[in-house]
Design a protein around this nucleic acid. Structure first.
Length: 444
RNA sequence: GCGUCGAUGGUAGAGUGGUCAAAUACGACACGCUGUAAACGUGUUGCCUUCGGGCUUCGGGGGUUCGAAUCCCUCUCGACGCA
């Protein structure tokens, strides 16, 4: 993997670049479509591509549980499996430590109001006496035990395990196993969790290098994966097909080129911890970095800035799980190269659509007889061919096409917005573009 | 014509003397969703309200009772059975 910065945004941390992966280039800043279970919900790869998406992100935890990482590996890796020909990434499962752990069953999400964080009644002093509180993820020093949300079985995921799974999944870019903490945790806990995340980062890297080493050459792949290998085909994508005579089960197994590994910076909302984390994670031999955590909207930009001022400039940075329009401007201005977010597809499926004048709820009464497209100047498939009245009708009728048309528009809207922001930096009018966009978007 | 059963809020459908402005589901309306436990979730859904409560509702009318959606009479309508 190779990252080149083409242009920098003056007087800020922002930059435009190109990230080369075995499956093609990613022009950054870029928005990564989230396809947790090796599918962008309700869209086929052609629709994802037509929306302008350059890269998609799957999830370690979900794919490990179903269908199983070996299934994906034997299919030829996540890209081949899901018929996505471009670059792919996988998240490590670290977010599920949060979403199925501290946040499970609570009104805590990736973004949370500042008031909620500081409201003492919502803090987690119970942390040390809420061990019987319902949660599907429990953190140990060595790893995390998950109770499968699918069938209740217990799975223990360590950094090593996460990396092994991700190597099997075979994405171009993978992430270190981290602990995404709840912002309601106190500083003491944030510090402990950060130490854990740092240790896990080292272990992720170590395991990654071990696997990489093993796969470093076809010869080594033979030794590591398979005994009695008789033939190794030329690589296709990031995978090579390996044939054996002796073992019919292993016959036709696939070996992969090593993916790139991104380390993840945590540290909650504390400046010292964030900087300490950026320093530490940034010093390790990662190919790039993720910035993780659950934020309050109010302090997300400062956290991103603290981190990106420290992280090595020449490596790509991915702001994990963030992607509302205003956040994209903020992130890019503060040196973020990659974003992923479920918002466009989830909001779409749930009936909220992005427009340049802000989000609209398509089920609202006023759209039932609105025969104009969601956005009149939008060139996405949905806007070119369908009216708000029709999409509203599909939602009211609970038709599957509703989520598809809405997701197409939302994904196009966000991907295209990032693309336009990128262009605005190249054209030296980022700030003007930002002001104009937000003036229209943020106002009612 | 006789008999039996039935008629409940936008719909379906509980309730069968007080705890009933009436379960539940659907619908309607509004809102939420940021590394996807999510084609999901939450709230409201008779009228008025100073949010304490007040008022009118369970086909129509009349009764019994301290009290009726619930019991009785009658009318209207519907289903089924017998003529």
């Amino acid at each position: 993997m190779e990252f080149k910065i083409q242009k920098k945004l003056k007087n800020s941390l922002g930059r435009v670049g190109v990230l080369k992966t075995p499956h093609g280039e990613i022009r950054t800043p870029a928005f990564v479509a989230v396809g947790t279970k090796a599918t962008i919900k309700s869209l086929n790869p052609e629709q994802v591509k037509e929306a302008g998406t350059q890269v998609v992100l799957g999830n370690t935890y979900h794919l490990y549980l179903q269908p199983g990482d070996e299934i994906v590996r034997n299919a030829g890796g996540i890209g081949k499996f899901m018929n996505w020909k471009g670059p792919t990434m996988t998240d490590s499962g670290g977010f599920q430590v949060f979403s199925l752990g501290a946040a499970y069953g609570k009104e805590i999400s990736k973004l949370i109001h500042l008031a909620k964080i500081t409201d003492p009644s919502l803090l987690i002093p119970e942390r040390f006496d809420d061990s019987d509180a319902p949660r599907l993820a429990k953190i140990g020093q060595d790893g995390v035990s998950f109770k499968s949300h699918l069938d209740g079985t217990i799975h223990y995921i360590t950094p090593e395990k996460s990396i092994q799974i991700q190597h099997n999944l075979g994405a171009d870019i993978i992430f270190a196993f981290d602990e995404c903490t709840s912002p309601t945790e106190d500083l003491k806990y944030q510090g402990e969790a950060l130490e854990r995340t740092h240790r896990w980062a080292e272990r992720s890297l170590e395991e990654h290098n071990k696997l990489k080493e093993a796969q470093g050459s076809f010869k080594k792949a033979k030794e590591y994966f398979l005994e009695g290998v008789s033939q190794v085909d030329e690589p296709r994508g990031s995978a090579v097909r390996v044939r054996t005579d002796s073992d019919p089960i292993k016959n036709d197994s696939l070996a992969f080129f090593a993916p790139a590994l991104f380390g993840i910076v945590q540290g909650g909302r504390d400046e010292n911890l964030r900087k300490q984390s950026a320093k530490f994670i940034g010093s390790l031999d990662f190919d790039g970095f993720g910035i993780g955590g659950s934020f309050a909207k109010e302090d997300m930009s400062t956290a991103v800035k603290w981190v990106n001022e420290i992280l090595p400039e020449e490596k790509p940075r991915h702001l994990l799980g963030i992607g509302e329009p205003e956040d994209l401007f903020m992130g890019i201005e503060n040196g973020v190269d990659l974003f992923d977010c479920v918002a466009p597809t989830r909001l779409g499926r749930n009936g909220t659509l992005y427009t340049k004048q802000g989000k609209i709820i398509i089920m609202n009464k006023k759209f039932r007889d609105d025969y104009s497209p969601v956005e009149k100047d939008c060139i996405c498939y949905s806007c070119k061919n369908y009216t708000k009245a029709y999409i509203a009708h599909l939602f009211h009728g609970k038709e599957m096409l509703a989520g598809t048309l809405a997701s197409i528009h939302n994904l196009y809207f966000i991907v295209n917005l990032v693309k336009n922001i990128r262009q605005s930096i190249l054209d030296d009018n980022f700030f003007e573009f930002k002001d104009n966009f937000l003036k229209s978007y943020a106002k009612d």
